[in-house]
Amino acid sequence: MTHSPEDTWTLGGRTLRSRLIVGTGKYKDAEETRAALAASGAEIVTVALRRVDLKQKDNLLSWIDTSRYTLLPNTAGCYTADEAVRTLRLARELGIADLVKLEVIGDPKTLYPDNEETLKAAKILLDEGFVVLPYCTADPIVCRKLEALGCAAVMPLAAPIGSGLGIRDRHTLRLIVEQARVPVIVDAGVGTASDATVAMELGVDAVLMNTAIAKAQRPALMAEAMRDGIVAGRKAFLAGRMRAVPYANASSPTAGLIE
């Protein structure tokens, strides 16, 4: 992965400055969502596709600033490739760009992805010209297969969706980062700002999160913390951390001590 002096990154042909992608679910209301999105500095925000609620006139598209945020439709709640493809075809009809978050769930309790169905759906969507960002398990082989199909990124989970358990398996994420030739986006599991920092220190390109911000006591403040945590982790990754050693190594000179 190459980085310009401003440290931008590229996703599906878009040049981005923010390495934080945020969801728009689980907020109290539109105002709380808007404030958190603004504080996060995100340029891409995820949305879900659902039947219109005829009683609810406050449509997301009427208050979200689509000139500021690229909407990334997801396939949350889809358990088969067919459902996911159907959902994203409808999402495209809503006039949003070709960028889509593919998630095919395999189990309601863990919300772990069904990688087999995800690969199947990715193939169909790529053939139809979608720019596919797939949510997947943190498995280097699945990531390699998704990349080989032509996905614009891979999005391994760090812990179950909405769990806030943090980065459970740094080693495997690191293996995925080392082999990937497309952006790696940690999708799901972050609970607080240090988790986002840890992910970025591993060298991933971005982090996608929703619950960690939406379910904080003060979502907008947490969004800001996440933004800062992402920046700190990115800088630490670029800086290259010191080697860890088992024993102390004095920082002050050992010579010239008074006697």
């Binding site: 728009t24 949305v47 879900a48 219109v52 997301l60 598209l61």
Partner: peptide, 10 residues
Amino acid sequence: LEIVTFVGGG
């Protein structure tokens, strides 16, 4: 007929 729209999601 299915009529759908975008809602908040992650």
